[in-house]
Simulated assay, not measured.
Amino acid sequence: MYRLEIIGNIGQDAETKPINGKDYYSFSIAYTEKRNGQNKTYWVRCLRLVGESNKLGNYLKKGQQVYISGMPYTSAYINKDNKAIADQCVFVNNLQLLGGRPQSVQNTSQGNSAPADDDLPF
């Protein structure tokens, strides 16, 4: 079994994307590791099958801390500067929301339309 596990924060609200006739939630997670006394932040793209319930998308919001595990997939592409870029993606099998709901979901559920505090580092 080949599996990747990550705890991190969602970088922007999840989007629904059709891939091969099925809908997937697409979002990125940032996680930070300390190497040689310095913090280094890494980004991983995630795809999660929408499945029977599409309510999960309401909770995959910027800043939400999540735990994911799934099948990693690495590919490469040439960017606009003609440089090869490695692209890391995880097909998510297991997703758990951590640390409560993000502020924007709390405001929506309470009927409060005030903007969410957006001073997150990503």
Rank of each mutant, 00 (worst) to 15 (best):
D13E: 10
G11W: 00
V66H: 05
Y2N: 15
K17I: 14
A114C: 01
M1Y: 06
D119A: 09
Q64F: 10
L97T: 00
V50G: 02
Y2V: 12
I29A: 01
F122S: 09
L95S: 11
Y59K: 12
Q38P: 06
F27W: 11
C46S: 03
N94G: 00
L47F: 14
P72C: 10
N36P: 08
G111H: 02
E5Q: 15
G21Q: 10
G70E: 13
K34M: 12
S26Y: 12
F27V: 08
E52M: 06
K22G: 15
I68A: 07
L4A: 13
A84W: 05
Y24R: 10
D119F: 03
V92P: 02
E5K: 13
E52F: 04
I10T: 03
A116W: 08
P115M: 02
Q64Y: 02
N54L: 07
N79I: 11
Q110N: 15
D87F: 13
Y73M: 09
P18N: 14
G111R: 00
A116T: 07
Y42G: 01
D118R: 06
C89T: 14
E52G: 09
Y77W: 11
I19P: 00
D118L: 08
G21P: 04
I19E: 07
N94P: 06
P121K: 12
L120F: 12
A86K: 12
N54D: 11
G70P: 03
V105A: 14
L47I: 12
N20K: 10
F91M: 15
R3G: 07
I85A: 04
D81Q: 11
S109R: 14
A84Y: 14
R3V: 15
Y59I: 00
N93M: 07
S104P: 07
L98Y: 09
A86W: 07
P121T: 04
L4H: 03
D23C: 09
K61Y: 02
N9G: 01
L49R: 07
N93V: 05
Y2L: 10
Y31R: 01
D118E: 12
P18M: 13
A76R: 09
G8E: 01
T41P: 01
S104V: 03
G100W: 11
Q96V: 05
L120N: 06
Q64M: 08
Q64A: 11
I10C: 05
N94F: 08
A116V: 06
N39F: 09
V50W: 07
N112D: 15
L98S: 06
D13A: 14
D118P: 06
L98K: 09
C89W: 13
N79W: 08
P115L: 08
D81C: 02
K55E: 12
N79Q: 00
G57M: 03
T32V: 09
G37H: 09
I19T: 01
P18S: 09
Y59T: 04
I19V: 15
N94A: 05
F122R: 12
N82M: 10
E52Y: 02
M71P: 05
I78S: 14
F122C: 04
E15K: 14
D81A: 15
Y59V: 09
I6P: 10
K61G: 05
N93I: 03
N94Y: 03
K62V: 05
S28V: 06
C89I: 15
S109G: 13
G51N: 00
A84P: 01
P18C: 08
S113N: 15
N9V: 08
D13P: 10
N112P: 05
F27A: 12
Q103K: 14
